[in-house]
Design a protein around this nucleic acid. Structure first.
Lengths: 240, 240
DNA sequence: CGCGAGCTTGAACATTATCAAGGCAAGTGG
DNA sequence: CCACTTGCCTTGATAATGTTCAAGCTCGCG
């Protein structure tokens, strides 16, 4: 591994463990020790990080960039399950259950990761019982998000589902501006369609309609300026 | 609590902990001790066991009967997330995360439960580190099922989704017979519709069509005889 | 500046929801 | 034991909604 010419890479390395809330109960020394065990990788946009069904045997933490996790549906589409970004992790299932990856993970932009092997992770869990509880709590959070996803996929009205997605994105990838919230979209139209389980064209149409209604303004293809968040919230929440 | 006139209630009590795979690493003495801490409840069909948003503060194990867990969607429908039956449990999220219940749980038939309070559960986790790992593994399993649910809700073809549901039921509630697999349906047509996120009438129509095609035979409203499981599997898996 | 991927839009088509009417079955009370 | 009633299920017709196929456009990249 090349030595770094500036601090940045070094800092990133150190941050590996810091970035995961699950490890927050470690003291500084433990954190540094654990971080030093990490291995580092990077991926180009579009590169596959893990393949559905593959053995993974590592806890993978996203240090930089974002990635989508998806399963292939029987009819050949890709159903996106998660959009991971900085600080998110995956692979714990494979470490603990010993099963293979349930989904493919693909970089949406250049990605840097830190990974921890099974041994390191197990040792950590055994020596720090609190971590196990933290992991459970984190999983429960994720589970709850998943339950919400199922709930919203069960909603008949697509408007409501698209609204919900945009609001989620606004929260995670939005910046306040004088005009409204500027959402830097992590997914293309096709990506959003594959997240929602609908056709690409339908996403286009719905967004056009929302723009006509003055709820938002598209800024190129990779950003959306949310003008009337409240209206979206109403649409996503109340109206069917 | 009334003393029991026969062994059955007593046996059920003892089984509380035995029935949860998560506790399988306990030795017999620990198991009995833990079981003795349980409190027992029973519910009539249709009775609400927990309300979405309520404080629960207990791990609830189904000892007998079945129940559905659902969230209300913004448009007023109920989206069923889980069908719990004997041996399944819920409420751990509330114990560990301290948050309120994410869903309503309602008995589908007469139900008996054992519940464990926060203190007992915490003590158990602390004194048996293995249990924590088992809990994590169990959650991961559940998570994977949830991911599959999202995947299948993303599938456009309803035939495939209904097929998938019937196959799941066949596995969990089916008995082999000379003619085929007899599925004792835990849910009404409306229940299945609320599970799949579609209209009640559509479930009827699809089932009728499958009966016409000779894939299955309805046996009253509460059972289905699966004649050509293979055909269903093909429909659910390959064809869009 | 030009090319190509990804996006938008249109029109025809397929599917499902919705509304409405009728049927079957289980449980109730005479 | 039978008629009644109630709840759930089925079936039909119609309308709404999304998909698909096809064409043209735009953005963003080299």
């Amino acid at each position: 591994m090349a030595s770094c010419t500036c601090c940045s890479q070094d800092c990133l390395d150190k941050l590996c463990a810091h970035k995961i809330p699950v490890f927050s109960s470690l003291d500084s020394e433990q954190m540094n020790h654990f971080s030093s065990l990490a291995r580092h990788y990077q991926y180009r946009k579009g590169e596959t990080m893990v393949l559905e069904g593959a053995d993974l045997n590592a806890l993978v933490v996203l240090n930089e960039g974002s990635a989508k996790a998806y399963k292939l549906t029987p009819d050949g589409r890709e159903q996106i399950l998660y959009v991971f970004s900085q600080g998110d992790f995956f692979g714990e299932r494979n470490l603990l259950g010993g099963r293979t990856s349930a989904y493919t993970v693909e970089a949406l932009e250049p990605v840097r990761t830190c990974t921890f092997g099974r041994e390191e992770f197990y040792d950590l869990l055994r020596s720090n019982p609190d971590i196990a509880i933290k992991v459970i709590e984190e999983l429960e959070k994720r589970m709850e998000r998943m339950e919400n996803a199922v709930q919203s996929m069960g909603v008949r009205s697509l408007d409501s589902r698209i609204g919900g997605l945009l609001l989620d994105f606004a929260e995670k990838y939005g910046d306040e501006t004088p005009e409204g919230v500027l959402i830097r979209l992590p997914l293309s139209r096709e990506g959003m369609a594959n997240f929602l389980g609908i056709a690409r064209e339908t996403v286009s149409r719905k967004l056009s309609q929302l723009e006509t209604d003055g709820v938002l303004r598209t800024v190129g293809n990779k950003a959306i300026l949310l003008l009337k968040g409240e209206e979206l919230r109403t649409m996503a929440g109340k109206i069917g």
